[in-house]
Every structure is written in structure tokens, then in C-alpha cells.
Nucleic acid binder design. Structure first.
Lengths: 349, 349
DNA sequence: TGGCTATCTGAAAGCGCTTTCAAAAACGAC
DNA sequence: GTCGTTTTTGAAAGCGCTTTCAGATAGCCA
């Protein structure tokens, strides 16, 4: 091995390490570390020498070494059911917002509404190294929490409330019930539901339950043929509403699991010559970008995804840093009234 | 410090390390590593002992230590202009797909259409530790590529083609030109453009240039008052079209930077009593979920985001693993004809 | 200038893995 | 059995950073 002079070694395509900076600044690696991490107690001249050397060399600390040494990964994981879903994207984006400010990165994974996959992805993140974990909902694989606990990192659930665990979310049953009550106040008596797949999805389930209970309180019931479960998306909404019409007397109002589903249902309704809201009132979920621009503009339950994300991010950062937090943060959903809902045209049988 | 018996120590909330597995299996950590990484040359009985011990202890290797030791982070970074934009979400999701299969994770960051921010986010990822980097477009901060090179990791650009660098994308100018030619073939002579912000955005710029050139070839020009630049979104589309109408004789056809913009423009057109496509033909970009369901269904340039993501993921993995790759992968965009385009009603002046 | 305290600094010991290298064990052929 | 191979195995040396701890320096007062 040749012993090349410093300048030539530095030109090598090997990225510089703390040792190189130390050598160039004429200090030890300990001092380099101290300066670069902003800890006090380094004389001004040495501090400047280190900063200059680091800059000259284009030094970037090796994250793995730092993580190994500090036992901090400076990363937070998030496992969401569907990474392409608008609401989850918004949450991820706003969590990341907060994390980024605190110097953390977000690593997101996709669970596809399957508990086993969720466990696998979470394990993957745990192995990769994260200091905290965000999940969606309150239903998980039985092993998941033990595994997280094993790693001793904080976890927060989002989008629904939980009796046992830290969470940021809202009462899915109550907000859906509010929508149902609003429809009943308008005079509707036959109300249908088109939800996304509910297996392993407590949010969807809670919403339907909430609606059924609200109906029951007023002596009505959610007819099985008006309780439709389909895959998400506009196409799903069309199919769902078609399916609903196939099963006996049509409802005068429907509540949909997402605005996409509602959009699909409205398209199908129009295709069948039904007027919205004259013949059919429609309520969606999420208040997507396009909801106010549909024809008619869509009444919807606005879920404050960005706020949920911010709160979840803050919660995790606080716990990672050992600060106290409240276990439950409730971020209420809101019923946004637009023109897709109205009293039923004539008294429905 | 008490010297507790093994079983009790194992119950401590400290996550088990390779040493613990080794002790329990009666082998060395070297053997544990060999077994858990599937390298050959371990006798069957020891192999099984290690696997059992690892299982019993719920051992999960420390990613940072592994990364430090192997100089592999098993992670790939991606910096996109807007993490909430549908097209980029799709790309991220499909990149992740491929990465996940190869055992890598995706770490995504948001650059917000700003070169300085992009540099900052990329640096952050580099520091955090990634084995490869995906970028969008061909315009970047002048320091960015040097910094990436410094780390000696592969990089791939997406969504546009590049003369100098590895890329997966399509010819934005050519595909927009194709749309313009289609409109001209239909008989349109006054064609407008509503694009998203074009600063630091080569894709948007190339599209407008492509359209202008296609017009020029047929002796037409893109009037400045028909060349509108707005922020993305449905609202942006409405504003953009309103702005366009304010500037002299209206176009008989417009090409929009996204389907959202097209949607917004169609809403504004309808609000002004213009018929689509009778008075105004509209073309979007991306073929979003809702495009076929608009009224009328939207003609649009479909960008195969998922394919771009898959190709980009494969490209990076291949280079990380030292396999040869082609520098340029072209994934052509496609003009999807629907009912929002038609010949102009009467010969436009 | 000397002595005592308050500041700074560097050597060295990890963090928990992987991997090299040489020794030990197992195997075969004689 | 013995000896030469071929497998297996473990000890130990990193990977590049942080952090402790003790020694070196600087600052201050007498």
C-alpha cells in the first residue's frame, strides 16, 4: 500500500470521515464530534478550524455509525393501509413535516389492509431501525405490540381512538352517526351505506356500526341490502350503488366511505336517471380536493388528516425525547354541508 | 451490578443482540451471523440451534450495526417535487414495490419545486444513509451531482429524459406536441396552455416548448395570453382559464398540465356557458382516476408512472448490485382519447 | 511567579454487526 | 491408525461515530 500525501488521498473517491476532518483541522475526532453536534465547551478557534475543514472536505457524517453509537436512528416509521390513499398521503406528509423539523426522517410502509402484512412491514421497519412507529387504527396482529415493546420505542395509533393505547384520531362511529342523524333530520328513513372493505379495518366497521345505531335510536334499521361493502375507488362506488339498487326498494340517502365512492355512486345514480339530491342524497368521507367541484357539490365528513399527522408527529417526537404527552388526542371530524344532500322528494314508504 | 442468571437477564426489556443468540445456541457470533445471512458452510445442527435461539429470543438484527459493518444501508432515497401529487405518489409506491422485493426500503423526501430545498433534502438522505437516489427531472442544484458522486452511490432521474445522466422517463416535449398535433388535426387553430409552475421544472417547461414548436411547424403560434402558468390543483385550473379568457379571443382548445387543472378549467368553462367539447376542447395530463368519469370524460396524456417507478427501482437495484444497466429507459406517454376533445364548432378566426 | 480551579482536549472504549484468518474438526485414502 | 484435505468454527479486527475520563491548558488571585 502506497503512502500517498494527504492532498492526494483526499482526492480519492472515498467519502471523508471524521478522522479526515480531525487531521485537517489538527484536532481529535472527539473534538470534531463535539463541534459538529453543537455541544458547548470547544474553544472558538478550534471550532472554526473544524467547521472549515468539514466544509472543505464536504464531510457528511455516517448515519449508521452515529446511530450505532447513540442508539438513535433519527427515523420514525409509519405503516399505513394504503400508501396511495389520499387521506394517508396527507397524514404521512404532515407527519414528515413535523419530523423533519426535529431532524427526523419518515420511513413509510404499506400494509394493504392485511394484519399479517402490517406485522411484516412493521418488523421490517423495526429491523431497519426506527425510533418510533405510527400505525393506523386499533386492530393489529396480536404479536405486533409485543414486538414493538421489545424494541422499547414509542408507538402511536391514528385515525381512530383507542381505550388502551396512545392515539390521535376521532370517533368514527360518532361522526358517521352524526351524518346519519343529519339525514334523518332532513326526513330520510331509508339510508344506505357503501363502505370500503371492512376486514381488519376498524374505522370502516365503526362507521357502519355508528350509523346502524343512530338509525336504531330512531326506530329505523340498516337493511342488509343497503349495507354494501366494496373495494375503494370510483369504480367501486358505481358497482356498490348498482348492487344496492338490485336489492329491493332503493334508499333515499347513502353515506359512503370515501368521496371517491360517493363520486362513483353519484355517477351511477345519474346513469339511472336519479337526481342528486332530489332522488338521492349522498354523503362522502374525507373532503377530497374535488368534493366541492362535483355536480352537485358533495356533502362530506371532513377528516382533518393534516392535523392528525401533525399531532401524531409531535406526540412521537415528544415521547422519543422523553417529554410527557397526553395519551389520547381527539381531532374531531366535521360534517361539511354541500348540495348533494336535501330532504327526500316525497315521503319514502 | 448483580450477576443475574441467564433466564432472568433474557427477560430484561433490552432487545437481544447477536451475542445473546450465540450464547443461547452455544456458538460464536460469527456463526450466528453466517446462519442469519444464509451463507453456506454451517453444519445443519448448529444452524438449527441458531435459528431456534433467534426465534426464542425474538432477535432482530440491529440495522445500524449491520449497515456500518457492510457499508450497505439497504435503503434508497427519493426526492420528489411534491409528495402529495398523485403521479409522484404512484411512482414512489411502485419504486418501493421493487425495492421491497430486493430487501430495500424507500425513504422519500419532498423538495417542493425548489432546487435549494431539493439539495437540502438530498443531503439529508445522503447523511442518513442511502445506497441509491431517485430524483425527478433533469434540472438540479449545481452542487447536487457532485455531492452524490462524493458518496459513490448510483442515481437515476425520472419523468424526463436526459442527455448526460441515467434516467427513466419520456420526452415531455414530444408527447405534448403529439397532443397539440391531434388538436390541430381536428381543426383547432387557437390552442392554449395552462401549466403548473414552471420555475425549476423542466417537465412543465418542455411541454409548453413542445406545444409551441408543434404549432410553429404548422405556421401557428402560442399567443402569450394563451400561455398561462398557475399553481397546481382544481382551483388553479379555474383561475387559469379565467385568466386566459381575460386576455383577448378565447382559444378553442387547451392543454393542461394535470387532470386537476383540466377539471378546474372545465368547471370554469361551464360556469361561463361554454360547452366542452363544443366550444372548448380540453386535454389533461396523467390520466388520473377520475378522468374517465368527468363530464365529458377527459382526453388526457397518460403517464405510466407505475412503469417509470418499476424501471427506476430496477435500475437502482441493478446498479447497487453491480449489474449492468441501460442508461436511458424510455417509457412513452400515451394520448388517451375521450370525449372532451372534438373539432371546433365553427372555423375559428 | 506559583498554586488552585475551571475549561478544553484527546485517547480509548464502546455501539452490534460482518468478515477474515488461522486453528480445529471431520473426512478419506492409504 | 496416519496424514493430507476439506469443512466448520471462533477469535479478533474492524466499520465510523459518540462519549467518558483523566490529563493538559488556561485563567485567576495572591
Amino acid at each position: 500500500m502506497l503512502d500517498l500525501p494527504g492532498e492526494i488521498l483526499e482526492a480519492l473517491p472515498r467519502s471523508p470521515v471524521a478522522r479526515d476532518v480531525a487531521r485537517r483541522a489538527g484536532v481529535s475526532t472527539a473534538t470534531v464530534s463535539r463541534v459538529l453536534n453543537g455541544s458547548a465547551g470547544v474553544r472558538a478557534d478550534k471550532r472554526e478550524a473544524v467547521i472549515r475543514a468539514a466544509q472543505d472536505l464536504g464531510f457528511v457524517a455516517n448515519g449508521a455509525a452515529r446511530a450505532l453509537s447513540t442508539r438513535r436512528f433519527m427515523a420514525v416509521g409509519a405503516v399505513v393501509p394504503n400508501i396511495e390513499n389520499e387521506a394517508f398521503v396527507r397524514v404521512l406528509s404532515s407527519v414528515q413535516d413535523r419530523l423533519r423539523q426535529a431532524g427526523y426522517t419518515l420511513v413509510a410502509a404499506n400494509a394493504g389492509y392485511d394484519l399479517d402484512d402490517e406485522l411484516r412491514e412493521a418488523t421490517f421497519l423495526l429491523e431497519r431501525g426506527v425510533d418510533g412507529l405510527m400505525l393506523v387504527g386499533d386492530i393489529h396482529h396480536p404479536d405486533l405490540h409485543a414486538r414493538i415493546a421489545r424494541h422499547g420505542i414509542p408507538m402511536v395509533q391514528t385515525f381512530s381512538l383507542s381505550r388502551e393505547r396512545p392515539c390521535v384520531g376521532f370517533d368514527n362511529a360518532a361522526s358517521a352517526a352524526r351524518a346519519a342523524n343529519y339525514l334523518m333530520d332532513l326526513g330520510h328513513r331509508r339510508i344506505g351505506v357503501i363502505s370500503g372493505l371492512r376486514r381488519d379495518n376498524d374505522r370502516g366497521g365503526a362507521r357502519v356500526t355508528g350509523i346502524a345505531q343512530a338509525l336504531a335510536v330512531r326506530g329505523l334499521r340498516l337493511a342488509p341490502e343497503h349495507d354494501i361493502e366494496i373495494s375503494y375507488g370510483i369504480g367501486g362506488g358505481r358497482d356498490g350503488f348498482r348492487q344496492m339498487l338490485a336489492g329491493g326498494p332503493p334508499p333515499t340517502a347513502i353515506i359512503c366511505g370515501t368521496d371517491q365512492i360517493a363520486f362513483g355512486a353519484m355517477i351511477e345514480a345519474r346513469a339511472r336517471g336519479l337526481d342528486v339530491p332530489g332522488d338521492l342524497s349522498v354523503i362522502g368521507h374525507n373532503d377530497s380536493d374535488f368534493a366541492p367541484f362535483l355536480d352537485p357539490p358533495l356533502t362530506t365528513i371532513r377528516i382533518h388528516s393534516a392535523e392528525i399527522g401533525h399531532a401524531a408527529g409531535d406526540h412521537l417526537i415528544a415521547r422519543i425525547q422523553g417529554r410527557p404527552v397526553v395519551r389520547v388526542t381527539e381531532i374531531d371530524a366535521e360534517l361539511i354541508l354541500r348540495a348533494s344532500t336535501a330532504p327526500p322528494r316525497r315521503d319514502p314508504g
